[in-house]
Structures are given as structure tokens and as C-alpha cells.
Amino acid sequence: MKILAKFLAAAFALACSAVAAHAQYPERPITLVIPYGAGGATDIAGRNLASVTPKYVPQPVLPVNRTGAGGVTGTASVANAEPDGYTMMVARVGSHTVNPAMKATLPYSIEDFDYIGVFEINPVVCAVSAESDIESMDDLVSRIKENPGSVSYSSSGVGSLLHLSSPLVIDAYGVEKANEALIHLPFRGGGAAATAVITGNADFICTNSSALAGHIKNGVLRPLLVTTEEPVPGIDAPTVNELGHPELNALVGWSGIAGPKGLPEEVKTKWGEWLQKVGEDEDFLKKARDLGSVPVQMSVQESIDFINNQYEVFRELVVKLGMEVE
């Protein structure tokens, strides 16, 4: 009996230690992959979120930019990572809806991820350099119609929201074959794409408000429109409703948290709790709103439904504009 008692005690202790070890996630720092370059909307959203995680996450959440191929490189690295919760990512409109909608061959699909939740939505702003003689969307559209193939726009790479948004907006203004009427200049990230317009190396950009708000505030970019029903504080531009194009309200960016498919339930539960706390954090909310972003809290299913709907919308537009990429 004594031997049996010792065996049961040892087994119980071992089981308890295993449970305790399992309950310790995270035991080490968590890598948060940002699949686009510094200064863009994805980078800003991810670093804003990571800046407040020390209040709620017991280990550091370390943002890492893994750029390349318009978000594909970093996103694929997460899809192929060990699903242990130590490699997560900022899922983005470009990486998870535009890229799949545009590119026939990708090293991942939107089903290769476990989604925790969408935490931010960003309206799109079209802007030109403050030194440009283009004062309005009418000026921009007139120039494109008069000289098709002479006006350039910058993006964060093939398959990004920036790549699709400019032709989409110009198409809404009645420019035939909008994709062919513009010169696309891809850069490694939204920050570099915005800089190209500021320095005069590209004529205009259509990207998320968070990536341009600082440049607009500093007076180096002139906003021409914003894809919201109501004006956005700090962005002195007419809304698409005011310009007679309410259909462009569907053109928005978003950021969420995702990990490789097969995450343990504990990891998903803890990330869900952390994301909820971050979404209620006053520092996070203030910074997001100051950039013209809209903080949101979506459940896992709401996020999946939202992402799938975005994919369908963009896929339809890609086909219409002839923007499929092999």
C-alpha cells in the first residue's frame, strides 16, 4: 500500500507540474510579425498594439518587420511557423484579402491561419504632395483622362491595398481601363510609398489614414478624399459621400491578430483576452483615433466573416479591373 501511495503521489505531482507548465504560456517573448515595412499602416497598428501589451501580457511582444513581395514573405513565414503561440502576426487587408484576391499563386491561403480578432479599421485617404498643382480629385482625374499612362501612384508592393485602391478610386470616377491609365510604382512598405509622393517621385497615393496622418499634419501631403461618411479629424479632405461616390466607403483597411493554423486553445483564449484588454486601453484608443483609425473589437467568427467578405469584394474588383497577377 505504501508503494502504491507513493506511486499515486508521484503521478499526481507529475500531472500537476505538467498542467502548471502548460499554464505558463507565454514562457518566453512572442514574435509579432509585421509583413510590411516601417512607417506603413500595418507597422503603425502593430507597434501601437505592442506598446500597450506590457500591461497585460507577462512576456514581451516583439514586433518584427519581415518585408517582401507585397506582404507575402512575412505572411508565408507565419503560415509555416510552429503553431505554438510564439510566432503571431498582424494580419492585414493586403496580406489576407487583397493578395489572395489578386495573386493566382500564393504560398499560403487565408485558411492557413487561426484568427484571434480584427482590432482596427482604417479609412483610405488619397493624397498628393503639398507642392503639387493638383488641388482636388477633379484635377487628378482630369490629368489622367487627358494623358493616360502619364500619372503615377505609389504602393507598398504588388498585391497590397495601395496597389488596388488607386485604380479602384480612379475607376469610380469614370476613367476607362483605370489600371492601364496609371503607372504603378511599388515600394517596400507604406512608409516608403508615402515618401515617394512627398519627394515628387510619384504623383499620388491612396492608402490608410494612419500612414498619412502625420504627413498631412506636418503639411507635406495634401489630402484629396477620405473613404468615410463623416469627416475625419485632422484630415482636411472631403468624404467620398460629399464627392458623390458613397460606393467607395467599402474601401477600408483593417488590422487583426492571427497565428499559424493549429494554435492550442489556451493560446487562442489568452490572446483573445489580451486583445480585449488592449481594445479597452485608453492609450491604445487615443493613439489609434489620433491617426484617424477606428478601433474595433470583433469575435473570432465576426473576424472570419469580415475577412471573407472583404476577399469577395476585392476579388470582384480585381476581375473587373483586370488586375490578376500570376
Rank of each mutant, 00 (worst) to 15 (best):
I205F: 10
I235L: 14
G190I: 01
G189H: 04
V169P: 00
T199Q: 15
N201T: 09
A213Q: 11
T228Y: 15
P186N: 11
V232W: 08
T227Q: 08
I205H: 06
A213N: 08
I170D: 06
I198P: 04
N201P: 14
G174H: 07
N218T: 10
V197M: 03
A178S: 10
A172R: 01
N208E: 15
D203M: 03
R188Q: 15
A181D: 04
A181K: 01
S165V: 08
I183L: 13
L182G: 03
D203A: 05
E176Q: 12
L221G: 03
N208K: 02
I205S: 03
N179M: 12
T207E: 14
L225N: 00
V226Y: 06
I183Q: 12
Y173H: 02
L185A: 12
G234I: 11
V232T: 14
A172F: 06
G219S: 05
T199V: 14
V175Y: 00
V226D: 02
A202R: 08
I235W: 06
I205W: 09
G190S: 07
L182Y: 05
S166V: 09
V226F: 09
V220R: 04
A202K: 09
G190Q: 09
H215M: 10
P167L: 10
L168Q: 00
R222W: 07
F204V: 02
K177F: 11
E229S: 15
L168V: 09
G219E: 02
A211G: 10
I205G: 01
H184W: 10
T195W: 11
A181I: 08
R222E: 06
L212I: 06
L185Q: 15
I235K: 07
N201S: 14
S209G: 05
L225H: 09
H184Y: 10
V197G: 03
V220F: 13
L185Y: 03
I205V: 09
Y173D: 00
L182Q: 05
G190N: 10
S209P: 06
I216N: 02
I170E: 05
P223I: 03
G191S: 11
V175E: 01
F187R: 09
L221M: 11
L168D: 05
A196E: 14
D171C: 04
G200E: 13
G214K: 02
G189M: 08
I205E: 04
E176C: 02
T199D: 15
R222F: 05
P186A: 12
E176F: 01
P233Q: 08
G214T: 10
V169M: 04
K217I: 11
G234V: 13
L182V: 09
L224D: 04
H215P: 07
N201C: 11
N201E: 15
G234D: 08
V175S: 01
N179T: 14
H184S: 10
G234E: 08
L182C: 09
P231Y: 14
I183W: 00
I235D: 06
E229I: 12
A181V: 07
P233C: 12
A172W: 07
L185D: 15
R188G: 12
P167N: 02
S165Q: 06
F204T: 05
E176Y: 03
E230I: 13
T195E: 15
S210T: 11
S165Y: 13
L164K: 00
A194F: 11
G191K: 01
F204S: 04
P231L: 08
T207I: 05
S166Q: 13
G200A: 08
